[in-house]
Every structure is written in structure tokens, then in C-alpha cells.
């Protein structure tokens, strides 16, 4: 299956491990990510102002690229746009909904981008977890070579995968898609309280202390509930929960670190892929020890 793939900036930089593990594990399932030509940054966060159309241009421009891919037969009648980063997913999806629900606004944007092909609202933004669910998580189970049955994993939804309700990939209050994913990979999902709690997001730039406190609470909750590691779909959460453990340790010397992986890294491990496709060099807290103990025995 060939599908238009929107990487976003992080997957080419700080989250290369997210991309490499995703693409290589998708191949095992027969999914071919076709990178959208000339994609541009989505803007990371959705503009919540009603009078601000400008910030929806970037997402719409990307939707036009998907239409072009269909025209040039890079993909066959496939107007779904696949995202991995949950912030890209949210921002693109929210913009798409807004212009679909407001034809006048879409017209303004189309007029402004008169050199581009007109966007007709026909693209659908989806997240990789949704695609896997649609194909059937059980397909993954068949491909598992390294059992994760001894691995207790805390699925961290954070915010952007499930909020607001209109764009969430699952129920905003009781999501379970991530846990279903983990079970299909033969891992043990842990029940924990902080799975939907915000990590502090962009406050990490100018208000690090808030993020450090929030991360401390989230990480401890995962540990307290028996998690060996945490999985996420967000490069910003990954930075705040993984790299910021350095700052958590400075503040709380008795803190016990915990690895934070992208969910696709767990797929690559379970599918028995080459170590190169794990990309652990970009994970701050290394998962090697816990994997050696619980998976690669």
C-alpha cells in the first residue's frame, strides 16, 4: 500500500529515530510511505483565533501537494495524508476541518494561493496509529519475532492525539487505541493516571521549571505503575519527557530515570529489525539495559 506521508520538521532532525523506525517497520507490514514532495512545516501548533486565517495556509498548501501526488500518479487514488508526529497530526487535521466547515475561508485561502492548484477539501489527515488500527492490529502480531511479553509499557497519549474531541484519534476521556497497539505487539500495557496529562509543551523554551515539574510527575506515575518504559508519538513530548530527565535529576537526585521511546521503535524491536532502524542514538535515556533484561534475553 502506497500512502502520501507528511514527515514534518522533527522527523528529519531531532526525531530521526521516529522516522527511520516507522518507515522500516511499515515495510514489514507492506506499507510504503511516499514522502510528499515539497512539503512544508505545518506550524506545529494550531492557531485558536477565529480571525486568523493566515496560519492555516501552511497546512492547506500541504493538502494541495497530496492532490498533486494523485494527479502525477505517485499514489493511486489515495487522498489520505499520513502523519506520525502528533503535533503535525493535530495542526493539519484542525486546519483541514476548519476549511472544510467554512467554504468562504477556504475560498479566501485558495485565492491567496492563486498559483497553487485549488484545494477542494478532499484530503483526509490520519495518524499512523489509526492506519494500523484500520489495517488490523492483529497483522502486527503475526510479524512479531521478539516477544515483548515481559515488557511493561506506559502508553503516553499526551494532548494532541486525543484533544479536542473533534480531531482525536480515540475517545478523549478513555482512549485505548495505544494500549490495543501495545497488546498486539505482545507488550504489556500498564494502567496509569498520567497518560493524558500535558508535559508542558512549548513552555520548555521559556519556562523550563514548569516542564520539569510536569515531567517529574508523569514519569514517576509511569514508574509507580510498573512501567519499564514509556512510548509516545510526539517529538516535543519526547524532548520534555526524555531529554528533560537531565533537569529532573538535577532537581530530584533520587529520581529513577525511565526510557521514552517512539511507538515505532517498539515496532522495529518486536519485528526483529536491524539495530540501525531503532535509532537509539537519539534517545537520551538509553533503553538498552531494560531491553536486554526483558526482550533480548
Amino acid at each position: 500500500m502506497k500512502i502520501p506521508y507528511f514527515p514534518g520538521c522533527s522527523l528529519k532532525t531531532s526525531a530521526k529515530n521516529f522516522e527511520i523506525s516507522a518507515i522500516s517497520s511499515a515495510k514489514v507490514l507492506g506499507i510504503d510511505f511516499v514522502e510528499i514532495p515539497r512539503w512544508n512545516c505545518c506550524g506545529v501548533v494550531s492557531s485558536l483565533s477565529s480571525d486568523d486565517l493566515m496560519h492555516h495556509l501552511a497546512p492547506v498548501r500541504n493538502f494541495v501537494r497530496v492532490l498533486e501526488m494523485n494527479k502525477t500518479k505517485m499514489v493511486e487514488n489515495e487522498k489520505r495524508m499520513l502523519t506520525l508526529c502528533s503535533m503535525c497530526y493535530n495542526t493539519l487535521k484542525r486546519s483541514n476541518q476548519r476549511v472544510k466547515n467554512n467554504p468562504e475561508e477556504l475560498e479566501s485561502i485558495n485565492n491567496f494561493m492563486y498559483r497553487e492548484e485549488e484545494y477542494d477539501g478532499s484530503v483526509e489527515v490520519i495518524h499512523y496509529l489509526q492506519l494500523l488500527d484500520e489495517i488490523g492490529f492483529s497483522q502486527m502480531t503475526e510479524k512479531v519475532k521478539n516477544s515483548l511479553e515481559n515488557l511493561n509499557v506506559a502508553a503516553y497519549y499526551g494532548c494532541m492525539l486525543i484533544r479536542p474531541k473533534e480531531v482525536g484519534i480515540d475517545d478523549a476521556e478513555e482512549p485505548e487505541i495505544f494500549e490495543k497497539f501495545l497488546s498486539a505487539l505482545t507488550a504489556k500495557p500498564v494502567a496509569w493516571n498520567a497518560k493524558k496529562r500535558c508535559c508542558g509543551s512549548y513552555l520548555t523554551v521559556n519556562n523550563k521549571d514548569v516542564v520539569v515539574d510536569l515531567a517529574y510527575g508523569i514519569l514517576n506515575d509511569a514508574r509507580k505503575n510498573g512501567a519499564d518504559l514509556i512510548v509516545t508519538a510526539c517529538p516535543l513530548c519526547a524532548f520534555n519527557l526524555d531529554n528533560r530527565q537531565k533537569n529532573v535529576l538535577e532537581k530530584h537526585p533520587d529520581f529513577k530515570t525511565i526510557p521514552v521511546l517512539y511507538f515505532t521503535q517498539l515496532m522495529a524491536i518486536a519485528f526483529g529489525l536491524d539495530e540501525k532502524s531503532f535509532g537509539f542514538e537519539l534517545n537520551y535515556i538509553k533503553p538498552n539495559d531494560v531491553l536486554k533484561e526483558k526482550v533480548f534475553k
Partner: peptide, 22 residues
């Protein structure tokens, strides 16, 4: 006013989202 040291350490996803909101 953000020091180069801070800017270097932060991933662009953090910077862009922060500047978009603030």
C-alpha cells in the same frame, strides 16, 4: 534574548511552537 546555548539545545518543534504562541 534567548542565549545561543538555549537555542542550540532545543529542538525546532519546541522553538516554533513557543514563538507561535508567545
Amino acid at each position: 534574548k534567548l542565549s545561543e546555548k538555549i537555542l542550540e539545545k532545543l529542538p525546532q518543534i519546541a522553538l516554533i511552537s513557543n514563538f507561535r504562541k508567545f
